[in-house]
């Protein structure tokens, strides 16, 4: 890990519950740019699915974001949008939250990877 002050790379954004957002913000990923656009979104029980979806799409469009972190339970709510994003940039990482442990069977990338092991393809 390098310690720089002049070089600016891309951002890591977060969509998740209070503790996930607070945690990663303490870790130093949070930013509010000059246009007052934050790179994080706190999801609570009152947050509408459409808000999560809009925020995720907004992060996908931003060219200063390289990694999008999203709690797996939030990702489940907008699974169709996450599955539709096949480009490696920005990388969408589904992470566990306090109340929802990581479930590999729900992860979009791992489901795609498992699809590669089609028995018909493996026969020579």
């Amino acid at each position: 890990m390098a310690l720089h002050s002049a070089i600016r790379g891309k951002l890591i954004s977060v969509i998740g519950d209070e503790d996930t957002c607070v945690g990663f913000l303490l870790g130093g990923v949070g930013e509010i740019n000059k246009n007052r656009h934050p790179n994080f979104m706190v999801v609570d029980k009152n947050t509408a699915v459409s808000e999560i979806e809009d925020c995720f799409k907004r992060f996908l469009k931003r060219d200063d974001i390289d990694i999008i972190l999203i709690n797996q339970n939030c990702a489940e709510l907008i699974r169709h949008v996450i599955d539709a994003h096949t480009s490696p940039v920005p990388a969408v990482l589904e992470i566990p939250s306090k109340d929802h442990p990581y479930d590999a069977s729900k992860d979009s990338i791992l489901r795609r990877a498992r699809g590669m092991f089609n028995p018909e393809d493996l026969v020579r």
Binding site: I7, R8, G9, G30, I32, H37, P38, N39, F40
Partner: peptide
């Protein structure tokens, strides 16, 4: 306690470089 859209702008302490 965390900043909102109405807060002063600030930069991320962590960035990713390729």
């Amino acid at each position: 306690q965390i900043p909102t859209e109405n807060s002063e702008d600030f930069k991320a302490l962590c960035n990713v470089e390729k």
